[in-house]
Amino acid sequence: QLNEKPLPEGWEMRFTVDGIPYFVDHNRRTTTYIDPRTGKSALDNGPQIAYVRD
């Protein structure tokens, strides 16, 4: 279940091809599976993935 609260300024939620949510921090140009609103991860110790700018 996804959090309904808005993401912090400069953050975006995207999904992997497998449908796993991850979070893009455009301020720091990093990505993470940890939801910045809750501190909880969509994966157990998930790796960071490459930042992609559209």
Rank of each mutant, 00 (worst) to 15 (best):
E4A: 05
R28P: 01
R53N: 15
N3D: 14
D54N: 06
Q48K: 11
V24H: 03
F15L: 13
G46Y: 07
L2K: 14
R37A: 05
R29G: 06
Y51D: 15
Y33P: 02
I34W: 06
D35N: 04
E9F: 07
D35C: 04
K5M: 06
K40S: 07
A42Q: 12
G10P: 02
E12P: 00
A42G: 13
Y22G: 00
A42T: 06
L43H: 13
N3S: 09
P36L: 00
P36K: 00
E12G: 03
H26T: 06
K40C: 09
I49L: 12
W11V: 08
E4F: 11
T32N: 02
P47G: 13
T16K: 03
F23N: 00
N45Y: 04
G39D: 15
L7A: 02
R14E: 03
W11S: 02
Y51F: 07
D35F: 00
N27R: 08
L43N: 14
L43R: 11
D18G: 08
E9G: 07
D54V: 00
V52Q: 11
M13N: 10
Q48N: 12
A50I: 07
Y33S: 04
Q48G: 13
V52F: 10
I20T: 13
R29T: 07
H26V: 05
N45Q: 12
I20F: 06
Y33E: 03
F23H: 00
D25C: 01
P8V: 03
Y33F: 06
E12M: 04
R28G: 12
I34S: 09
W11M: 07
N3G: 05
G10L: 03
T32C: 03
D18N: 03
D44R: 11
M13I: 10
R53C: 06
E12Y: 02
A42H: 05
I34V: 12
I34P: 00
P6T: 13
R29S: 11
V52H: 14
F15Y: 08
T31I: 04
Q48P: 11
P36N: 00
N45K: 08
P6G: 14
V17C: 07
P21F: 03
M13L: 10
P8L: 03
P47Q: 15
I34E: 11
R28I: 04
G19E: 13
K40M: 10
I20Q: 12
I34H: 07
I20L: 09
Q1L: 15
S41D: 09
V52Y: 12
K40P: 11
R28L: 12
R14Y: 05
E12K: 03
V24A: 04
L43F: 09
L2I: 14
D35P: 02
G10N: 07
I34N: 07
H26K: 05
R37T: 06
R29F: 10
E4L: 10
Q1M: 15
P6H: 10
L2P: 05
D54P: 02
M13F: 13
Y51T: 15
N27G: 11
Q1G: 03
P8E: 03
G39H: 15
R28V: 08
D35T: 01
Y22L: 03
Q48W: 02
L2A: 06
Y33T: 04
A50K: 15
F15K: 12
P6C: 11
T16R: 07
G19A: 12
P8S: 04
D44K: 09
T30G: 06
Q48S: 13
H26G: 05
V17K: 14
L43G: 15
G46N: 08
N45A: 14
A42V: 12
M13T: 04
N27H: 10
T32V: 00
I49F: 07
P21R: 13
L2F: 09
R14W: 04
G39Y: 08
G39F: 05
E12I: 03
E9Y: 10
G46H: 11
P47H: 13
D35W: 00
Y51E: 15
Y33M: 05
R28M: 09
P36A: 00
E4M: 11
I20N: 06
M13S: 11
T32M: 01
T31H: 09
H26L: 05
D35G: 01
K5H: 06
P36V: 01
Y33W: 04
P21M: 08
G10W: 01
G39E: 13
P8K: 03
I20D: 15
W11D: 02
D35M: 01
D25R: 00
Q1V: 05
M13G: 09
E4I: 08
M13C: 07
I20G: 07
F23S: 01
R53S: 11
V24I: 15
Y22D: 00
T38G: 13
T38W: 05
T32W: 00
P47C: 05
T16C: 06
G46E: 15
I49Q: 15
T32Q: 04
N45E: 10
P21D: 01
P6E: 14
T31Q: 01
A50G: 11
R53I: 02
P36H: 00
Y51C: 14
D18S: 10
T16W: 02
G19R: 15
P8Q: 04
D54Y: 00
V52D: 14
V52P: 14
D35V: 00
G46T: 12
E4W: 02
N3T: 08
D44P: 08
I34Y: 11
I49W: 08
P36G: 00
A42W: 09
T31V: 06
E9S: 11
T38Q: 14
T31K: 04
P47S: 14
N3V: 01
N45W: 05
R28Y: 08
D18R: 09
A50D: 13
D25F: 01
T30F: 15
L2D: 09
P8C: 00
M13D: 01
T31A: 06
P36S: 00
P8Y: 02
T16Q: 06
E4P: 09
A50R: 11
T30D: 07
H26M: 03
R28W: 04
